[in-house]
Write a protein that binds this DNA or RNA. Structure first.
Lengths: 250, 250
DNA sequence: CAACAAATGAGAGCACCGCTCTTGACTTTG
DNA sequence: CAAAGTCAAGAGCGGTGCTCTCATTTGTTG
């Protein structure tokens, strides 16, 4: 794939660069892909804080300064890994949700949650990079990370919205809790921004379901549960999803 | 305070060392306390991964190798900061819960949640150390951290147990969700270990409330909410606590 | 095909890190 | 008062991110 522009080919624009990829560009893209791949391996083993460009260079069979030809800095590599992780998670969530019947909204919610958990347990270091403690001194560039970084939450919102449109969302949850005006205003903003029709209270419960799923996954991935407090973690999470879907009105 | 034993004074034991603290011991304890204090400051600024013994030594006005007289290693300092954080959080949670009337169990739950959130927002680096991504290569020594590390969850469990004993816990939540046998067995184990009487389903919902609170706090502290998705974060969290307390049967 | 220019890799170097070891000075204790 | 114990300092090892210079490779173009 080309290094900069997302337009694959054709359409000669004002930029004289975006033609068919020259062999140099191809080699360059391949090298960057190799760096990202090795970076992922190091991330998995040593964590985000232990990600070392020098070590990646060694694995690449090249001196450390050479990788700076391809990656601007360690933070740049972190950004590439961040985008990589967001997209991998987003892909797996999408396929998991798509495998559930269109009108089984609760099942879609559970499939989403289980996909998140499965990916997180398989790639704990990437999960930690995406959803764990922020890497000190590193600020993700929003213009590159927001789109892949919001794929899962968008998917969840779309499930709620589809359920609501289908009349399958219980908007009046069992213990009715009033929403203060300031919070309601936020919810209205979100609703208009996303172009959905879910009422405020249901939207708030959806947000809570979202954060709760990640709380449960984080506890498990980050080892907050005691070593052997829970032996049936799969069942625990499944149960939590069932309770949460009820709370959210699905 | 003495460096090793928790017995303040008197009671001459078999150990010939535990007398009145010598000036040397006092100075040593003071130096260690200074190191921990400076370590906390560095933790707050540079995060756990950026915690540097050399920098602490500089602030202490001493050469780097000198601090190794007081702290075995960087990981040892991390452990001290971990215990420090757990105890500070535990203290604040305890006082916050104690300020609520004894029979207002839902209020106690909310007070606990709000105390956790307030502390986390005030000390994000410590919160990240305690509940965020694990520091790669660092394993907390359980024999020193489990007791302070379980103070808050014990407090929460005790609220649920007291509510149940007082007959104020709705054990049959609105959408009844069956608990698979393996998970029920885990819950029975926990119940007997803690010496409480809460039924399995309520205990499971308590666990979910616990992880959900931390999910919500983590999202806020770790900046997972968009920059300006929510302007009324205080109200959002309060609302989430209300929903969770309903879900948990309080 | 040859010449040129861009892209690339190597190496040295800077300042930082955790940690170890030795040395000399100091303080407490017998 | 001298021995024992404690401590700060400094040098040193291997690691890190990153910059700079220099030589070489490589693709393109006249």
């Amino acid at each position: 794939m080309p290094s900069t522009a997302p337009d694959a080919e054709a359409a000669p624009k004002t930029q004289p660069k975006a033609k068919t990829p020259t062999p140099r560009e191809r080699a360059r893209a391949q090298t960057i892909a190799d760096i990202v791949r090795l970076g992922r391996e190091h991330l998995a083993v040593h964590g985000a804080a232990g990600l070392s460009l020098r070590a990646v260079a060694r694995d690449l069979g090249v001196v450390s300064s050479a990788v700076y030809r391809y990656v601007e800095s360690r933070d740049e590599l972190l950004t590439l890994l961040l985008i990589d992780g967001y997209n991998e998670l987003g892909d797996e969530v999408d396929t998991a949700v798509a495998a559930v019947p269109e009108n089984d909204f609760a099942g879609q919610f559970r499939a989403l949650g289980k996909a998140v958990r499965a990916w997180a347990l398989r790639e704990p270091a990437s999960y930690a990079l995406l959803f764990g403690s922020p890497v000190p001194g590193y600020q993700a560039p929003g213009e590159r990370t927001t789109v892949p970084g919001t794929r899962v939450i968008f998917r969840l919102v779309s499930i709620f919205d589809a359920a609501h449109r289908a009349g399958a969302l219980k908007t009046q949850a069992s213990p009715a809790v009033v929403i203060p005006p300031a919070l309601a205003a936020d919810m209205v903003n979100i609703r208009t921004e996303l172009g959905i029709t879910v009422p405020e209270s249901a939207l708030a419960r959806g947000v809570l379901a979202w954060t709760s799923v990640f709380g449960a996954v984080s506890f498990e991935v980050f080892g907050q549960y005691g070593r052997d407090t829970f032996s049936a973690r799969e069942e625990l999470f499944e149960h939590q999803l069932l309770v949460l879907q009820g709370m959210a009105g699905l």
